[in-house]
Design a protein around this nucleic acid. Sequence first.
DNA 1: ACATTATGTAACCAATCGGTTACAATGTCA
DNA 2: TGACATTGTAACCGATTGGTTACATAATGT
Lengths: 201, 201
Amino acid sequence: MKSREETERRILEGVDRIIRTEGLGALGINAVAREAGVNKVLLYRYFGSREELIRAWALERHYWKDTLSANTPGDNRSWRERGAALFEGQMDRLFEDSTLREIIRWHISSEDPLSREIMDRVERDGQRVMESFSRFLEPEGDTEALVALLIGGIYYLTLVSDRTAVFNGIPLDREEGRNRLKRGVSRMAELIFRDTKEKKA
Amino acid sequence: MKSREETERRILEGVDRIIRTEGLGALGINAVAREAGVNKVLLYRYFGSREELIRAWALERHYWKDTLSANTPGDNRSWRERGAALFEGQMDRLFEDSTLREIIRWHISSEDPLSREIMDRVERDGQRVMESFSRFLEPEGDTEALVALLIGGIYYLTLVSDRTAVFNGIPLDREEGRNRLKRGVSRMAELIFRDTKEKKA
DNA sequence: ACATTATGTAACCAATCGGTTACAATGTCA
DNA sequence: TGACATTGTAACCGATTGGTTACATAATGT
């Protein structure tokens, strides 16, 4: 009974908790109100509608830690190696962040324009990282297509890990299998950039 | 007003049509009855429930044309090349068959055990093809992980092509972009199997 | 002390969902 | 013609959904 700001925060935390534990499909106004320990009337008073509530939740999230910016000054790895680490880091991030997986799931599954809107935001960051990275490599062959496939593989396998324990012989539910995949991502990135020249500039 | 058999077929065709045009999410009993031009009471009389109706629809489908069995006797391609063609064929199949995409979408999105049941059936076929193929190659490195990533990439990109026109600079809605991806799949398969020995047997 | 803001309660709306029931109207076949 | 299977109509159930309304109760700041 005091700060509206804090109540709004509690509601958004309820949204986050529901998405993390039950998925976006379970995100109803009634469920959120229950989860946040708040009356559902407040959701409408403060956010207007279900859609705007979800949008508000999505906007306050940051989606990509810029793995590339974690370059220490004394980093003497080649850009090929850094690229491999970049993709591996993305897979790691996705395995850890269930809400991020849920957003991708949503985008793939629904026709809701809002899911596009949010997913665009997610990928804009990733795109920016990729661009700053590709400034140092001269692509050979259709690197764009190969990278698209690699990213897609990362997306799909992390998504399916919530549903299936084993995929193509790999135990997605165990650390061992996930490490095999991350090494696979790294290896595949190396294969993609194997014939790529490094720019001098 | 005559053959029960034909009416059941019309219902199943209605299911198929809805899934193909509006997706599995739109597959309600009322929608199917409307689409099939039949009273919804009949759906219950003949199939029992929504779940059994979907199961009946799924069971009468065949999911993978065995690309590998399309090997003509005079085929003198290496197994590496055949592997590349195999994956490329899978991507082609997925781009063409929207209901297959819808099944994968369903499996990724919902917790419904039925989706697992059906997806298992889908992948059992694919697994069988892969096994008969890998009998001729001695893997070097974690081929399983790399193949998993490739399949995942194929799955994700075909799924996302229903929602997004451009991914990582590739126009998913145009023949040109899809061909780039298919060539990419082929190329990636070659990269994966580059260091793989062919068995003599 | 008073007005303002924040929060709550509870009933209510219209729509949709999967599913059921009772009964009437057809068509088919012997 | 009569028996039987097939199809249809239409009302109904209980549950859930997103969303609204009217009104009462607290806490806050000045």
